[in-house]
């Protein structure tokens, strides 16, 4: 798994428009495989919008137009003939801000992806479910109650269940949109520990409001900003997290990180 890592992204001049309004423009960045990249910036700076470009979930919102080039391990994901969005999403999973387990059992939640993708054999499914729950650090808490309804879990457990659900399809990349913002500090800590473990095997791109969290868990940090309402948001800079937080190249990054705005 370590040799020849997969799950890299190359963005070139990416812009996103909602209807006639351009929300994000001119973003170019490289996302390093099997590392954690944090997208930070104040509200409305297009972090989540940019994140959704990576698994083409913007397509599902209607009236959203994405332009520019996005390559996933060299493959142009904007071209449906090369890679169908449905296939892309099997390789690029997503965890949402609010835990969104399906109204079914714990087991069925995790088995959902592999099942619809064609895994039918019970033993195989059992193994996939167990492995995914272990990777999401939830197995020990739920191994005796896999038939329990997902809604009975706590918020933090539900979020780890959603991580397990995303991992069950064996994605190479996991996109996380403020995955801990709706959780209490202890659950939040557990999610962070899970991320630290997961980055050994998958690429993680995480949107976060919480700068301490970005500093703790990420290897690289991208700072985005919308400087005025009549201009689209853009990428200010991206770099090694330690450098970004101690010696950023741009004045605006420094102001944001030191808490002067946002």
């Amino acid at each position: 798994m370590v040799t020849n890592p997969t799950g890299s992204f190359d963005l070139e001049n990416v812009s996103v428009a909602y209807g006639s309004e351009t929300a994000v423009a001119g973003v170019s960045m490289h996302i390093v495989p099997q590392s954690v990249t944090a997208l930070i910036g104040p509200s409305g700076c297009g972090k989540s919008t940019l994140l959704r470009c990576l698994n083409r979930m913007n397509d599902e919102l209607g009236n959203v137009k994405v332009e520019g080039s996005i390559r996933f391990d060299g493959l142009d994901i904007m071209d449906n003939r090369l890679l169908d969005p449905v296939d892309l999403r099997r390789r690029v999973g997503q965890v949402f801000q609010k835990p969104n387990p399906f109204p079914m059992s714990i087991y069925d939640n995790v088995a959902y992806g592999p099942k619809t993708h064609g895994t039918r054999a019970k033993a195989e499914l059992d193994a996939v479910v167990e492995q995914a729950l272990k990777r999401a650090a939830l197995w020990n808490e739920v191994k005796d109650q896999l038939k329990k309804h997902a809604f009975e879990l706590s918020g933090g457990q539900q979020q780890r269940l959603c991580i397990a659900r995303a991992l069950a399809t064996m994605p190479e990349v996991l996109l996380m949109d403020e995955p801990a913002s709706a959780l209490d500090p202890i659950s939040s800590q557990q999610i962070e520990d899970t991320i630290a473990e997961l980055k050994k095997s998958v690429t993680i791109v995480i949107v976060t409001h919480n700068m301490q969290q970005a500093a703790r868990i990420s290897d690289r940090t991208a700072f985005m900003l919308r400087e005025s309402m009549d201009r689209p948001a853009g990428l200010i800079e991206i770099g090694d997290t330690r450098v970004m937080f101690t010696n950023p190249g741009d004045k605006r990054t420094e102001s944001y990180i030191t808490g002067r705005f946002g």
Partner: peptide
């Protein structure tokens, strides 16, 4: 969110 969760798993 439920629909999005399912679509993001690579379901049609």
């Amino acid at each position: 969110e439920l629909r999005m969760g399912s679509l993001a798993l690579g379901n049609t």
